[in-house]
Structures are given as C-alpha cells and as structure tokens.
C-alpha cells in the first residue's frame, strides 16, 4: 500500500493562493471555511528583512491526534495513510477539531467536519491533488513515501532542510516543508514520517 505524502518547498512558494483557490473549487468547499490557507510571516527591520509564505492544510499525520478522539469512528485513517472524515457517520461534535494541533479541520455548515483529503478522489485515479497540479511555482510535490523514486521522496532527499510543524506534538506529519527560509524554520530530527 502506498504511503501518501506531500512536500512544499518554501523557498519557491510565493503565497499566490492558486492552491487554495483550486482546493476551494475542486472540493466545493463552502464559503467561509477552508481546507487550505496561507500564513505569512515577516521578520526583521528595514532593510534587513525576511519573509515566509507557508501554505497549510491537513498534514495527514502518521500519529493523528484527531482520530482516536472521534466517538463514532468517522475520523479515520485509510490503508493509504490518508486521514479522512466519513460524513455519513460524523456527528459534528468537534472533538477532532479540538484535537488537531494544526487547525486543519472545520465544521462544514452541511453538518459534518471537513478537511483536506489530499484529493483522494483524484489520487485513486492516478492524478495529483488539485493544489499540487496547479501550483505555478512548482513548490508542491506529492507521492508515495515508500517509493524512493516518487516525486515527494526525491524532493525530500534533495532539500537543504526539511521541517515539520510542531514536532513536539509527536504527530509525525506526512506533509513536510522543504528549504524553509533562513530565520524561519522548525527543524525536527526524528519527527519526520
């Protein structure tokens, strides 16, 4: 079984939000809630400045805190390692929203919890997630972590540095950030998937 993962090269990302718009339309995400967003951080004083745009979404953690807290099993991990919500059995209690360290989940107004699916419907057909396919900076790579020749494995190998968000949470995310600009970064030995 593949172990799907994504890597985002922050040296390349310009925060244009093409990924966020693509996600919105691909997945018909209702107005007012989002599966994918971009965080901007600025550091320094003029003219000694640094800046980072960081797209964020569900990290499809290998140890997802959002799954065990679910009282109905709606929040689950697939055999491919995708962390998904089954709308049919979700009671919208919000336990998973509370448990996610990354604010990746939201209440869909239609009565269940929504989140990034890595575009499962696309990857089962051999396509890339919508955000990866459209990115005009080519900063996103996706693929099977167990396949050393997959795009994502190659990108992680070639990166100058690899970061994960909140490594101290022990979630072992399968979305990692590459080449975080100097002055930023989280660096996490052993936290990688």
């Amino acid at each position: 079984m593949p172990r799907y993962a994504m890597a985002i090269d922050l040296a390349a990302c310009v925060g244009c939000a093409a990924c966020a718009v693509a996600c919105k339309l691909e997945n018909e995400v209702p107005a007012g809630v989002d599966r994918l967003w971009i965080r901007l951080e600025e550091r320094g004083t003029f003219p000694d400045l640094a800046m980072q745009y960081r797209p964020e979404q569900c990290l499809h953690c290998a140890e997802p805190p959002c799954v065990p807290v679910c009282p109905t099993g709606a929040s689950h991990v697939t055999a491919d390692g995708l962390v998904l919500v089954d709308a049919e059995t979700c009671i919208a209690c919000g336990a998973c929203i509370a448990a996610c360290p990354y604010d990746a989940r939201y209440f869909d107004p239609r009565g269940f919890v929504g989140k990034c699916t890595f575009c499962e419907h696309r990857i089962v057909q051999g396509q890339l997630p919508a955000c990866v396919e459209t990115c005009p900076t080519l900063c996103r790579t996706f693929g099977d972590l167990d396949d050393p020749e997959s795009d994502v494995s190659r990108a992680i190998r070639a990166a100058r540095r690899v970061d994960v968000l909140k490594p101290e949470q022990g979630t072992r995310p399968k979305l990692v950030y590459l080449n975080t600009p100097a002055r930023f970064g989280l660096a996490a030995e052993g936290a990688l998937p």
């Binding site: 018909e28 065990p68 109905t72 099993g73 709606a74 689950h76 991990v77 709308a87 049919e88 059995t89």
Partner: peptide, 29 residues
C-alpha cells in the same frame, strides 16, 4: 487507549453503516 485494550486507529470499520439518506455525503460534481 491501551488500557482499555483498544486499537487506536480502526480504519473505516468503526461503525455498522445504516442506510441513512439524511446523512449521505454531499454529491460532488
């Protein structure tokens, strides 16, 4: 989790699914 002898991740098999038209996932384009 361990103390009650549970498997933390129970993929996709958690619930017996009932035919429930009210809870169907929204159709996608």
């Amino acid at each position: 989790a361990a103390s009650v002898g549970a498997v933390m991740l129970a993929p996709e098999a958690a619930a017996v699914k009932l035919p429930n038209p009210l809870a169907r996932a929204p159709a996608s384009w």
